[in-house]
């Protein structure tokens, strides 16, 4: 187990190093931060002095070394716009995004597992056929279109749901403000969560159905039938546990992808999270914030994948985390 963590940690360091290089390398191509920071009255000579002071004219290698040196001490730079450390800015927005991802993940898990399993057990029923048709349609509609469509139907026409923002939030722990504890906050979470889940849900329904139908053909399911077990036990223990193995692997990657898709969803719903912040940062050419965002999202990716590997090891007894390769 310890060997697994050490190996994983080394991998994470390499991944984070690559992400930081790439993130840092693209910032020069994003535009001129000074244009946004100072007005038009500032002359070109004064701008040049400012650039020198900020170190923007130094060679890439020097800039990068300085950045890494600070980063190792937990300082990823100062946002040009907010005039605050970028990590503080990002972490202030992180709860909103995590709650959105949590909402979407819950929808995906709670809907895709029963629907996928049912569609595998009764492939000929009209419900299964509808679910499959819906998933084909759902997988091909872009996220922002789903969001705008939902707003149009449920906020504009029916007036049931709020169309933007997080609603009422409460301070729970440190700087963590949550919308999960208030009715208004939960109501605001519904449409964005559905929107964010709209891409993953069809994928998981199809994945679970395909895996499950294959597992149901297996000899051990036939043997379980020959043992006279209750079908529910066969479906939800014998078959589902085997079905979930590939689903967990895909799911780990997809949670990261979902985090990336929050940019679209948060923009459509004016959701004050990291993705929305990132888009604003791009518009303002707030390069330290952009680089920090890329690194934070990269770190979340690495952490979720490590967790998923751990869970996979718990579910699949043939995987030993402290294997020989360690």
């Amino acid at each position: 187990m310890l060997a697994f963590f050490i190996r994983r940690f080394m991998q994470a360091i390499i991944v984070m190093f690559v992400i930081s290089v790439v993130g840092f390398a693209i910032q020069d191509n994003l535009g001129d931060p000074l244009r946004e920071m100072v007005g038009q009255v500032v002359t070109e000579a004064e701008r040049e002095v400012l650039r020198d002071e900020m170190g923007l004219n130094d060679p890439f290698f020097v800039q990068y070394t300085r950045f890494i040196g600070n980063a190792l001490q937990g300082d990823l730079g100062t946002s040009y716009f907010f005039k605050k450390p970028t990590l503080d800015v990002i972490f202030a927005k992180l709860p909103a995004t995590l709650e959105l991802v949590l909402g979407a993940t819950l929808i995906v898990v709670l809907v895709s597992v029963p629907v996928g399993v049912y569609a595998a057990i009764r492939p000929q029923s009209w419900f299964s056929k509808c679910a499959m048709a819906f998933s084909t349609v759902g997988i091909s509609i872009p996220v922002f279109l789903t969001g705008i469509g939902l707003i149009y139907v449920f906020s504009v026409e029916l007036g049931w749901m709020p169309s933007y923002g997080r609603g009422e939030t409460e301070q729970v722990w440190g700087s963590w403000r949550t919308g999960l504890t208030t009715a208004d906050g939960l109501l605001h979470l519904i449409l964005p969560s559905i929107t964010l889940s709209s891409l993953m849900l069809p994928l998981f329904i199809r994945l679970i159905r395909a895996e499950m139908s294959e597992v149901l053909q297996s000899e051990y399911v036939k043997f379980a039938l020959a043992k006279g077990l209750n079908p529910m036990r066969i479906y939800f223990l014998h078959a589902l546990k085997n079905t979930m193995l590939p689903v967990i692997t895909v799911g780990g990657v997809q949670i990261g992808t979902m985090l990336a898709y929050t940019i679209l969803t948060e923009t459509v719903f004016q959701w004050p999270g990291m993705g929305f912040l990132f888009l604003e940062a791009v518009n303002r050419v707030d390069t330290p914030l952009i680089v920090s965002y890329v690194i934070v999202v990269g770190a979340i990716f690495v952490i979720t994948n490590t967790l998923v590997d751990l869970i996979y090891g718990l579910v699949n007894p043939t995987v030993k985390l402290a294997g020989k390769s360690a």
Partner: peptide, 23 residues
């Protein structure tokens, strides 16, 4: 279901495939 596994039971061909790998 009452009879299967209780009064009449079966043994399958390939023991590698007959037992559930995750239980």
């Amino acid at each position: 279901r009452q009879i299967r596994g209780d009064r009449i039971s079966m043994i399958f061909q390939d023991p590698m495939m007959t037992l559930n790998p995750v239980l």
